[in-house]
Design a protein around this nucleic acid. Structure first.
Lengths: 346, 346
DNA sequence: GCGATTCACTAAACCGGTCTAGCGACTGGG
DNA sequence: CCCAGTCGCTAGACCGGTTTAGTGAATCGC
């Protein structure tokens, strides 16, 4: 016999299909003695549930969906995303829930996938990332009425629960640190302007600069790519006077910027301090190692997974979850401005 | 009405469920006129197939499985893996097939997931990566009798079809290039010794060294992490005489090695040439930019996806597919040995 | 012109579970 | 002692598709 069904078990145990179903799912309706016998038979026959059959009856699909609208080729360069994925996996697989992943070209295609997976009962919930300014996906996901957790906040995300860290507070801590070192001309290589967190960081930097009486900070939007990171750094360093510190919204851009500084003969951290908003192995393997905001992206992924599983189990409990504010890890790429060529002993 | 079923369409079009099924799946059994009418009604009602119901009847699940046995946290640091994933996605989503991804702790758990997904009809096929020396997973996948494509070869992988690039040839081209530059002491930071491709590269390096009359090459096994890459580099550079060139099995390790060289005051490429076996954005954003083997990992992913979809459509057509041999991209990290401190103009 | 074949379509079984209605036996309260 | 309620279980509908057997009508061959 290829694959035993509950009917086979029922026959062998001398009970009905219904009794087997009750026993296997731990619900009332059978006596303890019978339950035990059924479980033993199921074990003997090496029975496994048929996920499709379960899903047909309106039950769980046993998977959650994550759809990313990016050019597929750029996925590989983002340590942040890869770490997040790892954390999600860890959180989900502990509960034997799989992750359906799909990368699409644009937001329209993304919405299409949401609709398809929902209508096909393929997933029990969604994870929404890369929140945009007026995000059209929120209305769609609300309409589909499947549990969804948004990564990012505290911006508007309709009735969907969110998991977020305080970007604003994080940016303020960076500016405070740089100002304490004596920096007055701080530049910012931002990400895609359509993203909510990009705008929040830009605003936080501007506010902090005013409060501390620094020069007006410039924020340059980019597409997060190493190419734009390098180009924008080149442009900033060609200015006069040039900034004494640059804050990068991603570590890939920060590393690219480091390369440009070396190429242009600008010593880091002697004449330019570099701070990355993301921390990953990248910031540690370059020289000088980068001062960076450490957020535990892996843990973040786990928390998102947990929040989503909770929302699936009981949608009424869903609520926003604020995670620990990222803390600044000081390494070798920051120093007081105008030190000139650093010596090894400094 | 929440979700139209074929019964709804049948009623509206005034035909039977069976006729609707025939029409929607493009199989004979209905006239062209009727087929067209049914399709129009389905379109109007915005009908979508219920994947679970389909799978129940023994049809396709519409997803393929990829299971990785690694500590989840290390997933994030591998550009190779992320690129591969992107390519897989691209190849699969073009055919509306989803990727079911799961990261587990060890091979035993991995095998367990294969069994579960197969018995639950959750996937139509598998992708097997990180081929080991005597890989226990092959027998399991053959037994499960689901289409599977192996990434890596041409080692033993039973009856399963494989997609592979010629690692041996690639390593030979690196050694030829370094030997032509004048290097005679070449070291190799290898990956996990249990992997087939690690052994193939080690053997290729040794063979090439003998053939070219170079000093016996040393291959140091690592776990692919930046930490071991740095530690092993430090040990190699402390030797006397130290190697004049190091070949790294991954770009993360190569970048880490670059940092160690800088820290120890060994100029690259003046006194040490560095070659990476993997190419990604990483190799381009560091200074000096790394000479690396360029394989189009994204395209590789697409090819694997294509091979698997082909095997699912018709298992008898499955056969090994050898992809283009990676070519060496020469950048700034390689030069003739013993040049001393390089000048900008060289 | 008549049987054989083809065609378009219907009715119903089927996949493997879940879930509800109902039934007989037992228990408890008054 | 009788009726109501609970317990343990069964029979069978049901989810939304696919697939097969069968039916009536049209077409074909000779």
């Amino acid at each position: 016999m290829s694959r035993p069904t509950i009917a086979d078990i029922a026959q062998r145990a001398g009970v009905s299909k219904g009794a087997v179903s009750f026993a296997l799912n731990g619900r009332p309706g059978v006596s303890d003695r019978t339950r035990e016998r059924i479980l033993r038979v199921a074990e003997e026959m090496n029975w496994r549930p048929h996920s499709a059959a379960r899903a047909l009856g309106g039950a769980r699909a046993g998977a959650v969906g994550l759809v990313l609208a990016r050019p597929a080729r750029t996925l590989g360069v983002e340590p942040f995303f890869a770490q997040l994925l790892s954390g999600l996996q860890a959180g989900l697989s502990a509960h034997a829930v799989a992750l359906q992943l799909m990368v699409v070209e644009d937001t329209a295609a993304e919405v299409e996938v949401y609709r398809r997976w929902a209508s096909e009962h393929r997933v029990d919930g969604f994870i929404l990332v890369d929140l945009q300014m007026r995000d059209p996906r929120i209305a769609v996901l609300e309409e589909l009425d499947l549990p969804t957790v948004v990564l990012g906040g505290p911006g508007r995300h309709g009735r969907l629960p969110a998991v977020w860290a305080d970007d604003r507070e994080a940016m303020l801590s960076i500016v405070d640190y740089l100002a304490a070192l004596g920096h007055r001309r701080i530049a910012h290589l931002a990400g895609l302007p359509a993203f909510q967190h990009t705008q929040r960081r830009i605003r936080a930097l501007r506010d902090a600069s005013r409060r501390l009486g620094l020069d007006e900070a410039v924020s340059v939007p980019t597409d997060f790519s190493d190419a734009e990171g390098a180009a924008a750094t080149r442009a900033l360093l060609a200015r006069s006077p040039r900034p004494t510190a640059i804050v990068y919204d991603s570590d890939v851009m920060a590393v690219a910027g480091l390369g440009v500084a070396a190429e242009m003969g600008v010593p880091v951290p002697g004449e330019l301090s570099v701070v990355s908003f993301d921390d990953s192995v990248l910031t540690r393997i370059v020289h000088p190692a980068l001062t960076a905001l450490s957020r535990d992206t892996f843990a973040l992924g786990e928390q998102v997974a947990g929040a989503l599983l909770g929302a699936i189990a009981d949608p009424s409990t869903a609520q926003d979850l604020r995670t620990a504010t990222p803390r600044l890890t000081v390494r070798e790429s920051t120093a007081p401005p105008g030190l000139g060529r650093p010596t090894k002993s400094v």
